[in-house]
């Protein structure tokens, strides 16, 4: 048996992944944590969708919900037109097509397995012969820039953080997935290594025709790698749009604040006032109406009364704010 590439079904116009009204509430009645609360978005074929947000916004929970690592309270995941779950695409098949890379490169690898065994594990389980698996592992190591002769027989603790993250990426590629979810993949790395891994991700995407869901707290990294960006706040989508449009014309006050929180990189024009005060609130007690209203500089009376709908700013750019306006094309 070989691991054949997975054929495309719905054509380029059909989203690769569709997430509909996904929710996850933790805890019992009384103190419900609404980690993710009615999140919908699509990942198109061949694109990188970036998710940004601060701690507690639900970005990591979202990725785990998509992967089925935790069960959603409500909502649906549709992969290339097919519902994921009973009656549709089986979870096993879905997991072959969608892989995940985590922030902690060391905890993600079994310390007792060699690099070669870690990468070859899933292909072997899927019935690939020993020889075919070995050949595949060598190809994958070469693809992520690790010399196979030098690294295949090493153990995770013998590698640097950047090298381990390359191994995790190689392992994610092992079953020829179509979508890779990258949850803070470069956050634990030094800047010079971060750049190496980002370059690698760009190369691999082109080489293997991948789509990425890239989750990060680093606005600069998300801007660099994404085609479209989704901003999350307290379990909800605040804004979603094409990266250049969203970074140049943020429509949600939270997106504006987030962008204005970045260091200036210019000692002559330093930031003078913080765009927001206080910390991101705890998702245990979500504010009424717009969840951002207690921290918003442009808050209006109706913001605490009703939750704003997504407003279409242009064809591809939406924001959940009463002040967002449609820009005539």
């Amino acid at each position: 048996m070989t691991l054949a590439p997975i054929p495309d079904r719905g054509g380029p116009a059909q989203p690769l992944l569709l997430v509909k009204d996904l929710s996850k509430h933790f805890g019992k009645s009384g103190s419900v944590v609404r980690a993710v609360d009615g999140v919908s978005f699509a990942i198109r074929k061949g694109e990188t969708l970036g998710i940004v947000g601060e701690s507690g916004c639900g970005k990591s929970t979202t990725s785990r919900l998509i992967m089925g690592l935790i069960d959603p309270t409500a909502g649906e995941v549709i992969f290339d037109g097919e519902h994921v779950g009973p009656g549709g695409l089986s979870v096993a098949e879905f997991r072959r097509q969608v892989q995940m890379v985590f922030q902690d490169s060391y905890a993600s690898l079994n310390p007792r397995l060699t690099i070669s065994e870690s990468i070859g594990f899933a292909p072997r389980v899927h019935g690939l012969s020993r020889e075919a698996t070995n050949a595949r592992v060598r190809d994958l190591l070469a693809a992520v820039g690790l010399e196979p002769d030098q690294f295949a027989q090493r153990y995770p603790h013998e590698l640097s953080g950047g090298q381990r993250q390359r191994v995790n990426i190689a392992r994610a590629l092992a079953l020829r997935p179509r979508l890779i979810i990258l949850d803070e993949p470069v956050s634990a790395l030094d800047k010079s290594v971060e750049a190496q891994v980002l370059n690698l991700l760009v190369d691999l995407k082109a080489e293997f025709g991948l789509s990425y869901l890239f989750i990060s707290h680093d606005l600069n990294v998300v801007q660099y790698i994404s085609d479209r960006v989704l901003v999350m706040y307290l379990g909800r989508v605040a804004e979603i749009g094409p990266v250049d449009d969203l970074y140049a014309h943020p429509s949600h006050p939270y997106t504006r604040a987030l962008l204005a929180s970045r260091p200036s990189m210019d000692p002559d024009h330093r930031r003078t006032t913080p765009p927001l005060t206080g910390d991101p609130p705890n998702p245990v007690n979500v504010p009424s109406g717009c969840r951002f209203h207690p921290r918003c500089a442009q808050v209006m009376p109706k913001c605490s009364a009703a939750e704003p709908e997504m407003v279409k700013i242009n064809a591809d750019h939406q924001a959940a704010c009463f002040l967002a306006e449609t820009v005539p094309a």
């Binding site: 750049a195 190496q196 801007q223 660099y224 990189m265």
Partner: peptide, 23 residues
């Protein structure tokens, strides 16, 4: 110079990042 080139910031989209080889 390598560190400056490797630090992702505004206006680098689409460009290849300069990296420092090795460790």
């Amino acid at each position: 110079q390598g560190l400056l080139g490797a630090t992702v910031h505004e206006g680098m989209r689409g460009k290849r990042l300069t990296t420092i080889i090795g460790s």
